[in-house]
């Protein structure tokens, strides 16, 4: 590909001190076969316009901070190649369904609050003394939750979810998948502690299985599957409580 090839990035700008809603700004960047949308943005930042704001870190699909809307789809900009959008223009917007702080930077406070509500850590009824050693786990036991542990909190699933767009109280795909990551861990005993939030109206029952979260997920987490599985768990649990109210919670 000749070095002279170029592609236009149409970037959503929002500078709250000077405008009340986002506007578009176009930049021309070199079109190189190994360049991603993030490389294009970095080129803009370094050579064309230092005022452009966006988040990124690892450039390898691990940190989950570079999620944006590329040509209308929620994507990790570090794995969306410019050549896939050639001849362009490439439209780059902030992630949908989150408040925009500036340019391509969104506010994730809502997710962070929800994440703590589902207690994404190993809960034990009684802590084991350190000198008793580590908790052992068989490969099968690890298999039961490994998929959900791959989540990188990139928020593409929230951006793809129309339920979250319409009902911001929805706990949402990644938080539920991460709750399941611990619920299904053989070392964890906290499923009952997570139950109230997960089986509330804003929890799994708000989900109507659009399935777009799973389509958007760059890590194969399948949050939609995690939610449906928990629906089954919650329903079975309620049924048991109804039939056997004396049973152990």
């Amino acid at each position: 590909m000749p070095e002279t090839d170029r592609i236009t990035l149409q970037v959503a700008r929002y500078r709250p001190e000077q405008e009340t809603e986002p506007t578009w700004q176009s930049y021309e960047v070199p079109l190189r076969k190994e360049w991603t949308v993030l490389d294009g943005l970095n080129h803009i930042k370094d050579h064309l316009d230092g005022t452009l704001s966006y988040r990124w870190s690892c450039r390898m699909g691990i940190c989950g901070s570079c999620g944006m809307t590329v040509n209308g789809e929620p994507q990790l900009t570090c794995s969306a190649f410019l050549t896939d959008s050639a001849p362009g223009p490439v439209r780059v917007e902030p992630l949908a369904n989150f408040p925009v702080v500036r340019d391509l930077v969104v506010e994730l406070g809502d997710f962070m609050n929800k994440l703590t509500e589902v207690k994404p850590w190993i809960i034990r009824a009684e802590d084991k003394p350190l000198d008793e050693g580590e908790f052992l786990q068989t490969p099968e036991e690890m298999d039961a939750y490994k998929q959900y542990s791959m989540c990188i909190n990139c928020m593409l699933c929230y951006a793809a979810c129309p339920v979250y767009a319409l009902d911001p109280d929805f706990v949402g795909p990644a938080a539920i998948a991460l709750a399941q990551r611990y619920n299904l861990d053989s070392r964890d005993e906290g499923a009952a502690d997570r139950r109230d939030v997960l089986s509330s109206a804003a929890g799994v029952w708000a989900c109507t299985l659009v399935g777009e979260c799973t389509t958007a997920c760059p890590k194969g987490v399948d949050p939609a599957g995690a939610i449906q599985r928990y629906k089954l768990t919650a329903a079975t649990r309620s049924l048991k409580d109804l039939l056997w109210p004396w049973g152990q919670r």
Partner: peptide
């Protein structure tokens, strides 16, 4: 379980600075 509606919860910016844009 009572939860503050997400839309009314302050973000980490805590109300300082200009309001974020909601599409």
């Amino acid at each position: 379980m009572s939860r503050t509606p997400a839309s009314r919860r302050p973000g980490p910016a805590g109300g300082s600075g200009p309001a974020p844009y909601r599409k």
